[in-house]
């Protein structure tokens, strides 16, 4: 069975979209909500559990979207910056190392 993946939704405004274009990642954006773009960084079970433990305000929306929500803005900003720097969405292990 394929491993479950849980998205962290990073909402994309124009400025962020330009950064993703430069990093060659803009195609990874999805239109998720009435045209609003989202860049989704996926966590596996272990990463999800660690995120929920390390950032107690974060919440796993088990009922509606199966996504990890309410991460502090600076944490999501840092994940986004790492994706742009590494030109990859596979950054969570690296990001979580320091926690």
């Amino acid at each position: 069975m394929a491993e479950e993946k849980y998205p962290i939704n990073i909402w994309i405004n124009e400025e962020r979209f330009k950064q993703l274009e430069k990093a060659g990642l803009s195609d990874m954006c999805e239109e998720m909500l009435a045209g609003l773009k989202v860049f989704r960084v996926f966590a596996n079970d272990a990463q999800r559990d660690k995120i929920l433990k390390v950032f107690p305000t974060a919440k796993f929306d088990s009922a509606t979207t199966k996504s990890i929500e309410l991460l502090p803005k600076d944490v999501k900003d840092a994940i986004f910056v790492k994706c742009v720097e590494k030109k990859s969405m596979d950054v969570l292990d690296d990001f979580l190392k320091s926690y």
């Binding site: 939704n9 990073i10 909402w11 994309i12 405004n13 998720m32 909500l33 009435a34 045209g35 609003l36 919440k59 929306d61 009922a63 509606t64 979207t65 996504s67 929500e69 309410l70 991460l71 502090p72 803005k73 999501k76």
Partner: peptide, 22 residues
């Protein structure tokens, strides 16, 4: 496209203005 209060909070938390339909 389902949306919950939690999801909207996450958009607001990112400082992004959601579409007016939402």
């Amino acid at each position: 496209q389902k949306f919950s209060g939690t999801l909207i909070r996450s958009i607001v938390m990112d400082g992004v203005k959601p579409p007016r339909l939402i």
